[in-house]
């Protein structure tokens, strides 16, 4: 619901400002987020179950990097984003939709852009090493949510956050 002044949201307490993330398979890319001014996340290594790659792309400047969580640079970076970055962008588009990813990264998606790889192709990207630690610790924090104990005390603030999305 919108009106001419774009004021429909102004006095509403409960509304879905952000559409809920869409479900996607997590095996290859367990973690994607738009945070800290970056598209960032973690991509599981195809060959070694113990190894993960940390990939990131900065909003606006479109500087990218990919390395293992121990800061060893990804061997796939040869003057262009590697397959991990492509997988990261593809999964981000699945999770958030192409519009939200494009808006966050400040890139003009235009017509015919359906996947994250398409979106990457439209950016003037450049490589710039960044430490993996920040992103990796965000991933660990993300995983730590699943270890938190349940709560059985009333949480009245959740009235502002109705579950939604029943469109089948």
């Amino acid at each position: 619901m919108t009106d001419a002044d774009g004021n429909a949201w102004r006095r509403r307490s409960v509304l879905a400002v952000v559409p809920p993330a869409r479900a996607r398979k997590l095996a290859k890319v367990p973690f994607v987020e738009l945070a800290d001014g970056r598209l960032q996340g973690v991509v599981s290594s195809g060959s070694d179950i113990e190894r993960v790659y940390v990939s990131s792309l900065v909003a606006g400047t479109h500087a990218y990097h990919c390395s293992t969580n121990n800061n060893r640079p990804c061997g796939g970076l040869r003057g262009a984003p590697c397959k991990h970055l492509e997988a990261l962008a593809d999964e981000a588009v699945l999770q958030y939709g192409v519009d939200r990813v494009a808006r966050y990264l400040r890139v003009d998606a235009g017509d015919g852009v359906g996947s994250g790889t398409d979106l990457l192709a439209r950016m003037d990207t450049r490589h710039e090493p960044t430490p993996a630690a920040v992103v990796f610790s965000r991933f660990l924090r993300h995983l730590a949510y699943l270890e938190l104990p349940d709560s059985t005390t009333a949480l009245p603030e959740l009235h502002w956050f109705p579950a939604t999305g029943a469109v089948r």
Partner: peptide
């Protein structure tokens, strides 16, 4: 009213949320 709350991450959504409870 009785309430139970669990922590989750945003990629767990839809009917899967029951499994967190």
């Amino acid at each position: 009213r009785t309430t139970v709350v669990a922590a989750k991450v945003e990629t767990i959504t839809g009917p899967a949320v029951w499994r967190l409870l």
